[in-house]
Amino acid sequence: MDPTALLVVRCQLGEREALAELVRTWHTQLWNYARRMAGDAETADELTQETWVAVLRGLPKLRTPEKFAPWLFTIARRTLANRLRAQYATRAEPVAEPVGEHDDPLDRVELLAGLADLPLLEREVLVLFHVHDLSLQECAEVVGVPAGTVKSRLFRARRMLRDAMVERGYGR
Protein backbone atom coordinates (compact mmCIF):
# COMPACT_ATOMS: atom_id res chain seq x y z
CA MET A 1 0.00 0.00 0.00
CA ASP A 2 1.27 3.47 -0.92
CA PRO A 3 0.42 5.70 2.10
CA THR A 4 0.94 8.95 0.19
CA ALA A 5 -1.32 7.86 -2.69
CA LEU A 6 -4.02 6.87 -0.20
CA LEU A 7 -3.71 10.21 1.59
CA VAL A 8 -3.99 12.08 -1.73
CA VAL A 9 -7.09 10.09 -2.76
CA ARG A 10 -8.69 10.82 0.62
CA CYS A 11 -7.93 14.52 0.09
CA GLN A 12 -9.46 14.39 -3.38
CA LEU A 13 -12.60 12.88 -1.89
CA GLY A 14 -12.82 15.93 0.39
CA GLU A 15 -11.77 14.46 3.75
CA ARG A 16 -10.69 17.48 5.75
CA GLU A 17 -8.55 15.60 8.23
CA ALA A 18 -6.65 14.02 5.30
CA LEU A 19 -5.78 17.49 3.99
CA ALA A 20 -4.39 18.48 7.37
CA GLU A 21 -2.41 15.22 7.53
CA LEU A 22 -1.03 15.77 4.00
CA VAL A 23 0.18 19.28 4.89
CA ARG A 24 1.71 18.08 8.18
CA THR A 25 3.45 15.14 6.45
CA TRP A 26 5.07 17.16 3.65
CA HIS A 27 5.48 20.60 5.15
CA THR A 28 8.95 20.09 6.65
CA GLN A 29 10.35 18.65 3.40
CA LEU A 30 8.78 21.41 1.34
CA TRP A 31 9.99 24.19 3.63
CA ASN A 32 13.53 22.75 3.69
CA TYR A 33 13.57 22.58 -0.11
CA ALA A 34 12.53 26.24 -0.28
CA ARG A 35 15.02 27.15 2.45
CA ARG A 36 17.94 25.48 0.67
CA MET A 37 17.04 26.95 -2.70
CA ALA A 38 16.10 30.47 -1.59
CA GLY A 39 18.78 30.81 1.08
CA ASP A 40 16.82 32.46 3.89
CA ALA A 41 14.02 31.38 6.19
CA GLU A 42 11.75 34.36 5.53
CA THR A 43 11.64 33.75 1.76
CA ALA A 44 11.21 30.02 2.45
CA ASP A 45 8.13 30.82 4.60
CA GLU A 46 6.55 32.85 1.79
CA LEU A 47 7.42 30.33 -0.93
CA THR A 48 6.07 27.43 1.14
CA GLN A 49 2.79 29.19 1.81
CA GLU A 50 2.41 30.09 -1.89
CA THR A 51 3.23 26.52 -2.90
CA TRP A 52 0.63 25.05 -0.55
CA VAL A 53 -2.06 27.35 -1.95
CA ALA A 54 -1.19 26.21 -5.49
CA VAL A 55 -0.99 22.54 -4.43
CA LEU A 56 -4.42 22.67 -2.81
CA ARG A 57 -5.90 24.35 -5.88
CA GLY A 58 -4.48 21.71 -8.22
CA LEU A 59 -5.03 18.67 -6.00
CA PRO A 60 -8.57 17.75 -7.19
CA LYS A 61 -7.21 17.41 -10.74
CA LEU A 62 -4.10 15.33 -9.92
CA ARG A 63 -4.65 12.09 -11.88
CA THR A 64 -1.69 10.12 -10.54
CA PRO A 65 -1.76 10.29 -6.72
CA GLU A 66 1.26 7.98 -6.51
CA LYS A 67 3.32 10.71 -8.19
CA PHE A 68 2.46 13.28 -5.55
CA ALA A 69 6.09 13.96 -4.50
CA PRO A 70 7.43 15.00 -7.94
CA TRP A 71 4.22 16.95 -8.58
CA LEU A 72 4.62 18.82 -5.27
CA PHE A 73 8.25 19.69 -6.03
CA THR A 74 7.32 20.76 -9.58
CA ILE A 75 4.89 23.30 -8.13
CA ALA A 76 7.43 24.38 -5.52
CA ARG A 77 10.04 24.84 -8.23
CA ARG A 78 7.63 26.87 -10.38
CA THR A 79 6.87 29.12 -7.40
CA LEU A 80 10.59 29.45 -6.72
CA ALA A 81 11.41 30.11 -10.39
CA ASN A 82 8.88 32.97 -10.46
CA ARG A 83 10.64 34.50 -7.47
CA LEU A 84 14.21 33.82 -8.65
CA ARG A 85 13.51 34.40 -12.34
CA ALA A 86 16.63 36.48 -12.80
CA GLN A 87 18.93 33.84 -11.31
CA TYR A 88 17.39 31.06 -13.39
CA ALA A 89 17.48 33.13 -16.59
CA THR A 90 21.13 34.15 -16.43
CA ARG A 91 22.42 30.58 -16.43
CA ALA A 92 22.85 28.78 -19.73
CA GLU A 93 23.34 25.01 -19.63
CA PRO A 94 27.07 24.27 -19.96
CA VAL A 95 28.14 21.80 -22.63
CA ALA A 96 27.25 18.27 -21.50
CA GLU A 97 30.14 16.48 -19.88
CA PRO A 98 30.80 12.75 -19.77
CA VAL A 99 29.50 11.28 -16.53
CA GLY A 100 32.19 9.33 -14.70
CA GLU A 101 31.49 5.79 -13.58
CA HIS A 102 33.80 6.23 -10.62
CA ASP A 103 31.62 8.97 -9.15
CA ASP A 104 31.89 8.44 -5.39
CA PRO A 105 28.86 8.82 -3.16
CA LEU A 106 28.69 12.16 -1.41
CA ASP A 107 29.34 12.58 2.22
CA ARG A 108 26.26 13.98 3.99
CA VAL A 109 28.18 16.59 5.96
CA GLU A 110 30.02 17.67 2.82
CA LEU A 111 26.77 18.04 0.91
CA LEU A 112 24.87 20.05 3.49
CA ALA A 113 27.85 22.29 4.28
CA GLY A 114 28.56 23.13 0.66
CA LEU A 115 25.08 23.44 -0.86
CA ALA A 116 24.72 27.17 -0.35
CA ASP A 117 27.85 27.85 -2.44
CA LEU A 118 26.59 26.06 -5.53
CA PRO A 119 24.84 27.76 -8.46
CA LEU A 120 21.06 27.34 -8.53
CA LEU A 121 20.78 24.66 -11.25
CA GLU A 122 23.38 22.40 -9.65
CA ARG A 123 22.07 22.99 -6.11
CA GLU A 124 18.56 22.13 -7.26
CA VAL A 125 19.39 18.64 -8.56
CA LEU A 126 21.57 17.84 -5.55
CA VAL A 127 18.77 18.83 -3.16
CA LEU A 128 16.10 16.90 -5.03
CA PHE A 129 18.19 13.77 -5.59
CA HIS A 130 20.19 13.50 -2.37
CA VAL A 131 18.11 15.31 0.24
CA HIS A 132 14.56 14.50 -0.92
CA ASP A 133 15.42 11.09 -2.40
CA LEU A 134 13.70 11.64 -5.75
CA SER A 135 14.75 9.29 -8.55
CA LEU A 136 16.63 10.58 -11.62
CA GLN A 137 13.42 10.38 -13.65
CA GLU A 138 11.44 12.25 -10.99
CA CYS A 139 14.13 14.95 -10.80
CA ALA A 140 13.90 15.26 -14.59
CA GLU A 141 10.10 15.72 -14.36
CA VAL A 142 10.44 18.38 -11.65
CA VAL A 143 13.18 20.34 -13.39
CA GLY A 144 11.69 19.84 -16.87
CA VAL A 145 14.84 18.49 -18.57
CA PRO A 146 15.83 15.01 -19.83
CA ALA A 147 17.16 12.51 -17.26
CA GLY A 148 20.55 12.62 -19.00
CA THR A 149 20.81 16.35 -18.30
CA VAL A 150 19.98 15.75 -14.64
CA LYS A 151 22.73 13.12 -14.52
CA SER A 152 25.28 15.46 -16.00
CA ARG A 153 24.20 18.31 -13.69
CA LEU A 154 24.53 15.96 -10.71
CA PHE A 155 28.01 14.95 -11.80
CA ARG A 156 29.05 18.58 -12.26
CA ALA A 157 27.44 19.57 -8.95
CA ARG A 158 29.32 16.88 -7.00
CA ARG A 159 32.59 17.94 -8.58
CA MET A 160 31.95 21.62 -7.80
CA LEU A 161 31.04 20.67 -4.26
CA ARG A 162 34.26 18.71 -3.78
CA ASP A 163 36.36 21.51 -5.30
CA ALA A 164 34.71 23.99 -2.94
CA MET A 165 35.35 21.74 0.04
CA VAL A 166 39.01 21.27 -0.94
CA GLU A 167 39.41 25.03 -1.14
CA ARG A 168 37.93 25.33 2.34
CA GLY A 169 40.42 22.82 3.64
CA TYR A 170 38.14 19.77 3.86
CA GLY A 171 40.32 18.07 1.24
CA ARG A 172 40.79 14.32 1.28
Partner: peptide, 20 residues
Protein backbone atom coordinates in the same frame (compact mmCIF):
# COMPACT_ATOMS: atom_id res chain seq x y z
CA UNK B 1 20.39 11.18 3.11
CA UNK B 2 18.02 13.45 4.97
CA UNK B 3 18.70 16.45 7.13
CA UNK B 4 15.79 18.73 7.76
CA UNK B 5 15.65 21.88 9.84
CA UNK B 6 12.53 22.72 11.81
CA UNK B 7 10.55 25.19 9.64
CA UNK B 8 10.11 28.70 11.01
CA UNK B 9 6.59 28.57 9.55
CA UNK B 10 4.63 25.77 11.21
CA UNK B 11 2.32 23.35 9.39
CA UNK B 12 -0.53 24.59 11.57
CA UNK B 13 0.13 28.19 10.45
CA UNK B 14 -0.03 26.98 6.84
CA UNK B 15 -3.30 25.17 7.50
CA UNK B 16 -4.76 28.29 9.12
CA UNK B 17 -3.86 30.25 5.98
CA UNK B 18 -5.47 27.78 3.61
CA UNK B 19 -9.17 28.29 3.21
CA UNK B 20 -10.49 24.77 3.62
Amino acid sequence: MKEFEEPTLSADAVLAGLSL
